[in-house]
């Protein structure tokens, strides 16, 4: 799908937050992660734009652009940052009822693909 349009407000911050070599040793804090919002036929376009403006502090123009991208292309990367940051955003998006997932930025710097979170059998559990 499409590549990032919108480096979020936190993009540059990845380095500090990761509390050094904690348990997530495979997920170096400077490997960027993306927050993806997926299209669905229920959420109102106005509401999605409102969420992007109020939660991320995006301008109306930027929020609408991202919202239209979700609507037309099926998904959009609306923020990126450290794993912790995008996970925090994802929970907030779920709170609003938006369909959000996190994924490792492809082609990001140092794109080491040690899958975090478990031995990664790679079986998606539902079709």
């Amino acid at each position: 799908m499409t590549i990032s349009v919108a480096p979020g407000p936190d993009t540059q911050e990845g380095v500090r937050t990761g509390t050094a070599e904690s348990t997530d040793s495979l997920t170096a804090p400077d490997i960027p992660w993306n927050l993806v919002i997926w299209n669905d036929p229920v959420n109102l376009m106005s509401y999605v734009s409102y969420v992007f403006q109020s939660y991320f502090g995006y301008s109306e123009t930027k929020a609408n652009k991202l919202m239209m991208e979700v609507h037309k292309k099926g998904r959009s990367i609306v923020a990126s940052g450290s794993k912790e940051q995008v996970e925090r955003h994802a929970v907030a998006m779920h709170g609003f009822g938006l369909w959000a997932t996190v994924e490792k930025a492809s082609g990001g710097p140092g794109g080491k693909s040690g899958k975090s979170g478990g031995p990664g059998q790679g079986k998606g559990k539902r079709g």
């Binding site: 993806v36 779920h94 997932t101 996190v102 899958k115 990664g120």
Partner: peptide, 24 residues
């Protein structure tokens, strides 16, 4: 209402649920 956070990765999503689903 409580979707998986990682697409096509039930395991990572479940791990995340353990930490966040209750508060969500």
């Amino acid at each position: 209402l409580l979707p998986n956070v990682v697409k096509n990765d039930g395991e990572a999503s479940l791990e995340f649920r353990q930490l966040t689903e209750r508060s969500l």
